[in-house]
Nucleic acid binder design. Sequence first.
DNA 1: TGAACATATGAACATTTGTTCATATGTATT
DNA 2: AATACATATGAACAAATGTTCATATGTTCA
Lengths: 96, 96
Amino acid sequence: MKKIDENTLYDTAELFKNFSDSTRIRILYCLFEKERSVTEIAELLKMNQSAISHQLRFLKNSKLVKNRRDGKTIYYSLDDDHVYNIISQGIEHVQE
Amino acid sequence: MKKIDENTLYDTAELFKNFSDSTRIRILYCLFEKERSVTEIAELLKMNQSAISHQLRFLKNSKLVKNRRDGKTIYYSLDDDHVYNIISQGIEHVQE
DNA sequence: TGAACATATGAACATTTGTTCATATGTATT
DNA sequence: AATACATATGAACAAATGTTCATATGTTCA
């Protein structure tokens, strides 16, 4: 790794902020397997739809998830290969 | 990666919380190179000693840094190989 | 022992964050 | 067009967070 400027570190903190909340990390984790609708995610996490929607927007702004519409339903999925890797590494660390 | 329980995901979020604040990630990053005293870190980051001390305690509780005393001075250093890897991967992601 | 230095800590405060509630938007079906 | 369903969004609120200030603790050296 080469020398890093301050802005890069700020941006890196922003990236990790996505993974620092248990709701968001659980959302991302349940997208590991496959794309899911908002309702589906809300049911899986036993949280209300609004909370999930707000967090999905957060993740979307950070370009970590993408979505597609199919009729009334909007499916979310991971938008970034690194997400899987970074979270997996975090999980492995915790599991040791 | 095998199936994960809820607690593991909570703990993983806790781990990432360490990296989600720019002060903490800058502290960790400046420890990449070598161990440093509290005063030294405060000067590098242009922040007051108290703020750094509080964040170091946070990082110490999470077992991400360790310290040793040499006379009046206390030197902090990284306590975990994974820290370097996870942050590096985050930085690489941001730099793309 | 007393002064100077390095670090830690508690309290207070402002800011940020995550959730809920109510409601708006968009789509499909009848 | 009206209704039902899926999702998004704004406002309000409580809780968590990060910093500062003041001060305490611990160490060294004269």
